[in-house]
Design a binder for these strands. Structure first.
Lengths: 143, 143
DNA sequence: TTTCTAAGTTGACTTGATCAACTCAAAATA
DNA sequence: TATTTTGAGTTGATCAAGTCAACTTAGAAA
């Protein structure tokens, strides 16, 4: 019997995270996928504050605090004074962090390509569109 | 900027789980979504063993053991002697478990309907198909 | 200058997931 | 039948992820 949407999602995200984790380890990067996700979100902005990250990723601010703390301790991030908003701090990738992010970007591209084998660009786009629609539907009725 | 497939998935599953959890609580059911997921998997079969559940859901057997143990303690499941395979035990829903599962089924249907507002049956089907394709692609290259 | 507020931090806890070692009864084989 | 092997399940330890509330603190507003 065909899986429901929910089941398909559970299984896909599970595979996706696993692949990401294993590939990262194979690339010598031993980092929880949540850390990787946060780092990737910084790529787009290059720099921002913790609040923005939490909002962007839909995570609790306490969770973000802890991941950032860990990434700072590992030397991938540094916190600097925010130029305009003086009550938040600016998250900046260190040199080491940028290098790491480049590596992540590389194998992430590979994964993405493997993941969409047999799918057209149109299908991929539709998939994302539908996912977004479903998410908005869900968020409308709950939060 | 448009989210990547990975980001869309993270966010959608997050919303989905949250909605499920909140709706369950509103229905007076305070159960982790993982428990709910396992219970739902039993409906299709009505009865099976822990191994089958683990395989079906892609979970570690130890995880399944613990969830089942909890569901047994809560009185929703019972373990009986398997008629053919004598080294595994048969998982059977108790009366209370069946009632619970009915309730779950009810609000789960509502959620599913809300989730797909604005989408055609064809789109929903495509979404599941694409999700399955991606999962298979990922599993091919890793495990 | 005092009050308010937003960003971040911390603690405590729950849920989810992983891995290895172990039990134990059933099945297979000698 | 006696012994070995195997498979299902269990347990312990640990990590990762997510939640919620209380708290700190420095900047903004009054």
């Amino acid at each position: 019997m065909q899986d429901s949407i929910g089941e398909s999602l559970y299984k896909l995200i599970h595979s996706y995270k696993n692949t990401l984790r294993e590939t990262a380890i194979q690339s010598g990067i031993k980092l929880p996928v949540g850390h990787i996700r946060l780092l990737k979100s910084l790529r787009k902005k290059e720099s921002c504050n913790a609040k923005a990250v939490a909002t962007q990723l839909g995570l609790d601010k306490s969770q973000v605090t802890r991941v950032i703390k860990d990434l700072v301790e590992r030397g991938y991030l540094s916190k600097e004074r925010h130029p305009t908003n003086h009550r938040s701090s600016l998250l900046v990738l260190t040199h080491s962090g940028k290098t790491l992010l480049d590596h992540i970007q590389t194998f992430e591209n590979t994964i993405s390509q493997e993941m969409v084998i047999g799918l057209t660009d149109q299908q991929i786009d539709q998939f994302i569109q539908i996912a977004d629609t479903m998410r908005h539907n869900l968020e409308q009725n709950n939060d």
